[in-house]
Design a protein around this nucleic acid. Structure first.
Lengths: 133, 133
DNA sequence: TATTGACTTAGAGCTAACTCTAAGCTGTAC
DNA sequence: GTACAGCTTAGAGTTAGCTCTAAGTCAATA
């Protein structure tokens, strides 16, 4: 099955503008064209896009994703390098997740803080910090 | 204890430029000045900064943080609204954390994929998708 | 055959969040 | 009293990641 850019936009959750931009940036080397120059996305391309979205949304910059795609193009000689990319990126994502857990605790504290303040009708009840942190 | 902008930059992990920018944007209404106009950060200001960093790094845009700081300035009348801000933001952070977990699974899959490919010396072993996903 | 709508390109424009520059002021150290 | 480090301001510049515009091509339909 072949997909137009509009179809692919829908399926990937990216806009057609973004898909063209990604191609310009060298992320979508895999996309074929019809004889008249129109992009034709394949089923496998959607898999690639899903990986790109994964890397991007987990914090990898477009340029680094491009480097990874370049490695992919070079075949089996770059397998170790590609493994290293994911091992490194996993570390970065773990750090982010830990940070998010820390922030979540702070947010939960604030929810408790404001819940009790709303009950009391004033923030002043927290003035002497007499309660749980 | 009072801190200069340079000290505060060090302690908050933000640059002095960023602190001035945040003030310009209305996030740091709490900061005092010396008679000659130099910013003087207090211990409590570092707490505010830590909250700002928490909200920003967990995905809240600067403009929304500003609105929240505006609510704070208005006192007890806005307690309910402020509670709502954190309840909403908590939801958003939860969604992000779930996404991150999904991405982590994909990354782990790729680590397995490339580990086995490196062992085999070729990516071709995954061609017929005969192994665990 | 004419219209329509989806595609193409190059390149300009936009937004968020900084980041820096230039010119000038302040306050302590010699 | 002057040198110097560190502060001040307004405003320009930067970066990432899109987002859009203008002008044109192409294929299917009325």
């Amino acid at each position: 099955m072949k997909y137009s850019i509009a179809e692919t936009a829908k399926r990937s959750g990216l806009s057609a503008y973004t898909l063209r931009y990604y191609e310009k940036e060298g992320l979508l080397r895999f996309v074929d064209r019809t004889p008249s120059g129109i992009r034709e996305f394949k089923e496998a391309d959607l898999e690639w896009l899903s990986l790109i979205v994964c890397l991007k949304n987990s914090g990898m910059p477009i340029k680094q994703i491009k480097s990874f795609m370049d490695l992919c193009k070079q075949g089996d000689a770059t397998l170790k390098e590609r493994l290293a990319v994911f091992i490194e990126h996993k570390k970065a994502v773990q750090v982010k997740m830990e940070e998010f857990e820390k922030y979540m605790k702070k947010i939960d504290y604030k929810i408790w803080y404001y819940t009790t303040a709303v009950e009391a009708g004033t923030e002043a009840i927290h003035e002497n910090n007499s309660c749980e942190p």
